[in-house]
Design a protein around this nucleic acid. Structure first.
Lengths: 342, 342
DNA sequence: TATAATGGGACGTTTTTTATCCCACTGTAT
DNA sequence: ATACAGTGGGATAAAAAACGTCCCATTATA
């Protein structure tokens, strides 16, 4: 038998894409408000005219308000977004995609947000929102949270909210690091996260490439010993998944390291580990950091990664990903994965 | 809090009129199939192009099939119509209108079908469909059903279905009649209804205007006595409501009768009774027929009438209508009534 | 004070929609 | 057998709507 929404869709097939597009616009406005037509159009890869047409309707409906600084979502608009989220995700097949990935890779939970990370910046915000929501709804009492670097992980920051003083949360940098791209580094992120949540944090400023000697020496440092203890106690890990090549290049790895990685078939990177297509560890950055075994002991593991170009890395890492992993990705990547397994 | 359909409507306000119009087209096709573009366009007072655009979409959706003889509804199309009926009626305010009339006139149940009887022939079919549905779902066991004439009542015919042999239904003409407009006469209708349902029927062929003498003589006729007995036992009445003037003209009433009717302020007509605006009986055709008191004794009374020009008649008759009356009318009339009482 | 971003207005161009034919075909009634 | 009314599909010129793209005055912000 036909359900009413199905019947509605049969009678009005053009409704679905329109609804989806308009939802996307309203959602983006909510995430980027206040925002102007042109900026929004650029962000959503749409023409100014199209944005204008749709926002005119949304304004008439009282879902958004136009102010001097730009367009903002009204409370009605937010209510509409909330009410229709499940429906839109269901219709876009996002829920189905998520279930598919969950099953295929034996992960605890998968969330697929609409859009393509490579084409639309708001996708990053959506990733962060969902990841933060997952994280916040899972922390209870005293917690040690290990955090890696990267844009995906950084996206959580704006959605973290202050918590009860009773709950004692400590963010610790999952690996030592220093220097380039401070904004996305683990050390920076733990500080930001802690500030947003009125929580504690521990940083670990260390070079990324230690010689064997230096490494052994560092192991005796009190600061390092303290961090190692934290890693042992970690309750939660929030991490990204990187493409091996990209990561190596970004880390200014030495030519010999690059050669070694390529030789050993490294595909993905997470917590400083490099994995090949079969999920075997083929290399590790010689610095202080959380161990894979310690990650596996964590109650909660939140992985955030998006974009088609990371699909190979995801597939590789999923071979070893702990089953308690909650994975947040974007539609483009999820579809790419689904296509390969169809 | 916003419901999901409400949210959907807020985000996609143009959906509702489109859905309604497309529903109307599909519904009309179902009622008039097989039918061509041009005939349908004329019937719905739309342009051929518009019909073409919509039916193209409906065909793509597999809701209708295009055959040599014209367009027909597929089983999917019928399912969609059934599923969305309640929704469309609710959105069009038809349900609300019906409730309003129910309350205002103290009727058991009111059904308002979309459209305007004066502008769209399919409205008559809808009236018949709903009325037949009401009738069929109310007959249980042995039943005597009195039926008057008129187009509205005639519209039930095509929707009456054969019933169980165990159930013994007898249609009786509510009044004597003979001559003009056989098609719509009570005597013709009872025969048609009975044939459709494999039921019994009794006709009463009598002149519409009897002299006092002839009337008294007739009362002694066995045939008439039998009919009177049926009227006494009647379980159900199906009748129309007429505008006094129209009816008088159609019945070729004598100029003196016309004058009398006008003088006494006759507005409405039902079962051969004429009522004034206050609902008082001002005249009665002198022929054999069911008595108003007998109608009031019936378990079920189904009244069918549509069109703006009958609003005055409806309002007049409702002053005396039995409270067990189920009234089926069209949107145009219902709105007209609602406006007068707002 | 300079700048960058905002909403609103305007306008020529392009695309879509609309109204209205014609055509070949087919059941049906004469 | 034949005329006819009604069918879907095709085509086309005109009208209308949508579109892309500027400009402009204004205004927070740096």
């Amino acid at each position: 038998m036909l359900t009413i929404p199905e019947a509605q869709q049969r009678l009005l097939p053009e409704m679905y894409p329109l609804l989806q597009s308009r939802y996307r616009i309203l959602q983006s406005i909510q995430l980027m408000q206040p925002i102007g037509r042109r900026t929004l159009a650029e962000s959503l890869k749409m023409t100014e005219r199209e944005i204008r047409k749709e926002t005119d309707i949304l304004r008439e409906q009282g879902l958004l308000d136009i102010q001097k600084l730009g367009m903002v979502c009204t409370s009605d608009g937010i209510a509409v977004i909330e009410q229709l989220r499940a429906l839109v995700y269901e219709w876009s097949g996002l829920t189905q995609l998520a279930k598919l990935l969950e099953k295929r890779f034996g992960l605890q939970h998968v969330i697929v947000v609409p859009g393509d990370y490579n084409e639309d910046e708001t996708v990053l915000t959506l990733l962060g929102k969902e990841a933060a929501h997952q994280f916040l709804s899972n922390i209870i009492g005293e917690q040690v949270v290990a955090v890696t670097g990267g844009k995906s992980v950084a996206s959580l920051a704006q959605f973290l909210q202050p918590i009860d003083a009773k709950q004692n949360v400590t963010f610790v940098a999952a690996r030592g690091g220093i220097g380039h791209e401070m904004q996305m580094q683990a050390n920076t992120l733990v500080a930001t996260f802690a500030m947003q949540m009125n929580a504690q944090h521990r940083t670990l400023f260390l070079p990324e490439h230690l010689s064997e000697q230096a490494y052994q020496a560092m192991l005796k440092e009190p600061m390092v010993i303290e961090m190692m203890a934290y890693y042992d106690r970690a309750d939660c890990v929030i991490h990204g998944i990187g493409s091996a090549e990209e990561m190596a290049v970004r880390r200014n790895s030495s030519p010999e390291d690059l050669r070694i990685l390529e030789e050993k078939g490294a595909v993905s990177e997470a917590f400083g580990y490099y994995f090949n297509a079969e999920g075997a560890i083929v290399h590790r950055i010689r610095t202080i950091g959380i161990q894979l075994e310690q990650v596996e002991q964590c109650k909660h593991v939140i992985a955030v990664a998006a974009g088609k170009q990371k699909v190979n890395a995801m597939l590789s890492y999923f071979k070893v990903a702990p089953k308690q992993t909650i994975f947040i990705t974007d539609e483009a990547a999820a579809k790419e994965i689904a296509e390969r397994y169809l």
